[in-house]
């Protein structure tokens, strides 16, 4: 079965960022296809590579990156939500004339259309939020 997962909240503040990861991992382990994970609202904060938790805590961002590398997952960050919250990739940095970018490996920034398109193509939408 084809899934699209929507993540609405940032890491560490809400368990929902963890729940979405656990669910995605379980769906893949169950042999399902995860077409896309779409990060919306504060969920875009799951995609900053500057995340630096203490050593005894999980790294929520690199955990997503690793899962993406392993399963060729499409991790999409909503562009409008990302710009508001300071999540940029290299080309956006140049275009917006900023001095840094922070998008983590395995993530890409794109429009809300990616969520709608994913929902149309998928069999199930599962939303994780607060």
């Amino acid at each position: 079965m084809k899934f699209i997962i929507q993540v609405n909240e940032g890491p560490y503040q809400h368990q929902t960022a963890d729940s979405a990861y656990q669910f995605t991992r379980a769906a893949l382990a169950r042999g399902h296809e995860v077409l896309r994970v779409f990060f919306y609202h504060d969920g875009v904060n799951n995609g900053t590579r500057l995340t630096s938790p203490p050593q005894d805590d999980r790294n929520i961002v690199s955990r997503w990156s690793a899962l993406a590398a392993e399963h060729e997952l499409d991790l999409v960050i909503c562009v409008a939500a990302a710009h508001r919250r300071g999540i940029l990739d290299e080309s956006e940095m140049k275009r917006l004339d900023k001095d840094a970018y922070n998008l983590a490996p395995g993530f890409r920034i794109s429009g809300l259309g990616q969520l709608i398109e994913g929902v149309v193509l998928a069999d199930r939408l599962v939303v994780f939020g607060d």
Binding site: F3, F23, R25, A26, A29, R124, V127, D130
Partner: peptide, 19 residues
């Protein structure tokens, strides 16, 4: 468990999250 959560989302036609 999480595998059971996944199975439920397959068993039911759609998922509604009450946030």
């Amino acid at each position: 468990d999480y595998a059971g959560f996944v199975d439920l989302t397959v068993e039911y036609e759609k998922v509604q999250a009450w946030l």
